[in-house]
């Protein structure tokens, strides 16, 4: 028990170093006034969300749930009022330069990406407003979305429509292109749904490998596409399971069963059991033959010599015995 306590004390003291006497985080006025050059489109928000999940979530937690790491100072929940008080310029400055346990992302994230993240965290407060007024969840996002062709229903329309949202997978064999389509059935006809975040992935052991770009949403015809990499390994039969689904982070908003199709596109796995060959590091019964025979040969030689010596001594004994008897 005491060890766990030691660990925790250590953990806390570790962060005390980082958090030591840190006052308010003052951002230079010029940086504070900086405006976001990237328009807050659904695409930008989607990218921002992905980037957030990759780089920020481990400490800041799920937005709105206030479940960030218990550090000192505590990473602020980006959906919180306190956080949203920051100007875009302030957030950008803080992401860029970091302080204490907050890393500096200037070397690892391009400016563009940092602005995408800001667009995403801004969308959180809007979402809150949206929820309060019981309007469709992503209305605010889609309001700034690029123009949608008039013949296809806009996202918020389709969301409120009665037909159930569905996903389908299609393939173009020659180019190994995968198409996922989001649609609804209305009066016996399929109606494509745009602006649905859909990812195409290939099944793997721990997590599935995404083939489509991060943050991709369906186009006006309801499609998302991805190219299957030629060199991706498959199972021993060369088969891979391809999946279309809503990304984990979006599943609260869009509840659609994922679609799986098995294709023979991958590189056949030729299973190699490295333990089959004899080697110096293998188990005792898999030792190299040269070693086995050298060993047995040497031991046999010694044993034969011992037997010979014993026979000589026995002769000495016999000679003595016979002469004594005589």
């Amino acid at each position: 028990m005491s060890r766990k306590q030691v660990f925790f004390t250590f953990l806390l003291s570790g962060f005390v170093v980082f958090g030591y006497s840190q006052g308010a985080w003052v951002v230079p006025a010029a940086d504070k006034a900086k405006k976001n050059p990237v328009a807050s489109t659904a695409e930008s928000i989607g990218k921002g969300k992905n980037l957030y999940n990759t780089h920020c979530k481990s400490c800041h937690g799920d937005p709105g749930k206030n479940n960030g790491l218990p550090l000192n100072p505590k990473p602020t929940d980006p959906a919180s009022e306190q956080y949203q008080k920051n100007t875009d310029g302030e957030i950008f400055y803080k992401i860029t330069n970091g302080r204490g346990a907050m890393p500096a992302f200037k070397a690892t994230l391009p400016e563009q990406d940092r602005w995408h993240i800001i667009n995403f965290v801004r969308s959180l407060s809007k979402k809150k407003v949206a929820e309060n007024t019981s309007e469709p969840a992503n209305q605010a996002d889609t309001a700034q979305a690029p123009m949608i062709a008039t013949e296809t229903p806009s996202a918020q329309d389709t969301l409120m429509a009665e037909g159930k949202l569905r996903l389908a997978l299609g393939f173009e064999e020659d180019s190994k292109t995968i198409y996922a389509r989001a649609f609804r059935v209305k009066g016996g006809k399929t109606v494509p749904v745009s602006m649905v975040p859909v990812e195409i992935a290939v099944k793997r052991y721990f997590r599935d490998l995404r083939l489509s770009e991060a943050g991709t949403v369906t186009d006006e015809n309801g499609y998302v596409s991805a190219i299957f990499p030629d060199d991706l390994p498959a199972d021993t039969a060369g088969q891979v399971v391809i999946i279309a689904r809503i990304p984990e982070a979006e599943q609260e908003q869009f509840s659609v069963a994922q679609v799986e199709v098995t294709k023979s596109w991958g590189v056949k796995l030729i299973p190699q059991n490295m333990k089959e060959a004899r080697s110096l590091w293998n188990d005792n019964h898999k030792l190299p033959l040269w070693l086995l025979f050298s060993y047995l040969g040497a031991v046999a030689g010694v044993l034969v010599t011992f037997a010979y010596i014993l026979s000589l001594i026995f002769k000495i004994y016999k000679i003595g015995k016979s002469s004594m008897n005589a």
Partner: peptide, 28 residues
């Protein structure tokens, strides 16, 4: 790991997963 240091996976699948972000990537 809170900082995304580790990736772990199966070389036969050529995929490793980041322990922090759960992001999957091609190992190669």
């Amino acid at each position: 790991c809170p900082n995304g240091v580790y990736w772990f996976g199966d070389m036969n699948e050529d995929v490793v997963v980041n322990g922090t972000t759960k992001e999957a990537a091609r190992f190669s």
